[in-house]
Design a protein around this nucleic acid. Sequence first.
DNA 1: GCCGTTTTCGGCCCGACTGTTTTCAGTCG
Length: 564
Amino acid sequence: MEVSNREVAEQLSLMGDLLEILDGNAFKVRAYRRAAEVIGRMAAPVAGMEEDELAALDGIGTGIAKKIREIEETGTFPELEDTRSNMPSTLIDLLNIEGVGPKTIKTLWRKLSIQSVEDLERAARGHRIRAIKGFGEKKEQGFLKAIALFREQSGRMTRLQADAVVERVRQVLAEGTFEFAGSYRRGKSTVGDIDIVVSESPALVNPRLRTVADEMIEEGDRRTSIRCLGTRVDVRFASPRQFGSMLLYLTGSKPFNIKLREMAMDRGLKLNEYGIFDHKTGKMHTFGREEEIFSFLGMDYVVPELREDWGEVDAAVHHALPTLVTIQDIMGDLHVHSEWSDGNFSLRDLAHEGEKRGYRFLVCSDHSATLGITHGLDEEALRRQQHEIEMINRGGSDCQLVKGVEVDILADGSLGLPDTILADLDVVIASVHSALTQEIDQMTRRVLSAMENENVDIIGHPTGRILGERHPAEIDMDRIIAHAVETGTALECNASPYRLDLDDSQIKEAVSRGARIAIGTDAHKPAELAYMQFGVTTCRRGWATPGAILNTRSLSEFLEWASS
DNA sequence: GCCGTTTTCGGCCCGACTGTTTTCAGTCG
């Protein structure tokens, strides 16, 4: 069986972790992690690529290219196995404990034979750690606390969870004196912690933060960290005249910051979170707003969503950044469920809610009958629903309902409803809901064959991932995108904060190759129509212009696209 | 390990906070 990109990325990332503990060369560690990240977001499977093709990729050289080949042939590579044999594999779990890094792990392992989180916990409880030089009572307590936290926390938050933390912290901050930063501001589909830049003084803000904090993690004049609703919140203080520099720094991403700082370095400048230091003149330039920094560096402004070191820095230097789609461009929602299947909306409510949002159209896309659990529609029900839609539309709502369906792509690639029915509908979304563990080639051919059906307009949530719960299905996104372009089938960006599927990097690939993207909230109740913002943000992160997004078309343009 | 409009060698972003220290290492963002 062919090795997947995710598996290759995991092996390279593991190598980075092991090296961090054993070898200590931070640049080598960074190189492995960077390579893992690059492989992780590639559409084309690395299996089958030539070594020189791989080495041509940014961040991958001849060394790692060779290792990828070896992973494909043997499932691993010699350096990884060598490194592994020199240490217990459970050591790397310790990297996930806050406050425990590679040096600490090495010391604990050498001096106390600590090999796992359990070992560390026992040693701390038994007060055996304070015996080591450089360690004390507070470290022991810190380890125990961090272990408890590690066990109750399960990775990154959805955007909805992040919003809850943001709202709580916002209550104690004064309007106009702060800005949320980090991955939250960049619009990432999941968020690890919350970062905020605040212009009021720490003396003023720290006591207020205390009132919404589960605990104060650290408290300083320049930086304060709290735990809020179980989430780490990092606050950086900046005077108004340095606010722009701090916001830029804290928004990241880390690779973006490094890229920008390297670029500044090339020009004899030092960029940090306080400003730009000119080595020649000895002058420190400060910036109240981010825009001024980009302008000082002779680049276009890079919006937070693009700051990932995916090519945006060069594009900004060459004034070649795309004009991104905005929420104001959105004319309608392309994937909504009503009470005719498993949704809570009546059709009339739907039209009304769409009107309230200023939409010109909504695609009613209830499930087909093959999906037993969701009371799917059969031919009879569909016809009755279509009749009702016509009645409502005749009422003259500003938001017209579009007759659609979300039909299952069955395990063999056939569809859950006959062509005769599909042909009567304006929009057909075809989605995989079952047999999600098929092998990559079978899953890919299954979706390709759905695209072959001339009635199918959109492939719904193409990878089927559920954030934090279900990995994306193994599917060859390279072939899917190629066929989407060929057949004129759109790929969905499912805007549910639990899916966001396609993801940002897949959208970037699809858009760059001319594929069309359909944003659908998959709303089952009125409040979920607001998920549109998550879909738009994800598409912006994927460099999508309004022209690439079907939702920006007028109703007639959209229907024309669907019928062609 | 990667990379290169000076370079195939010698660089690789930069700073805050804590704990355990008599000046700094380690971790983190």
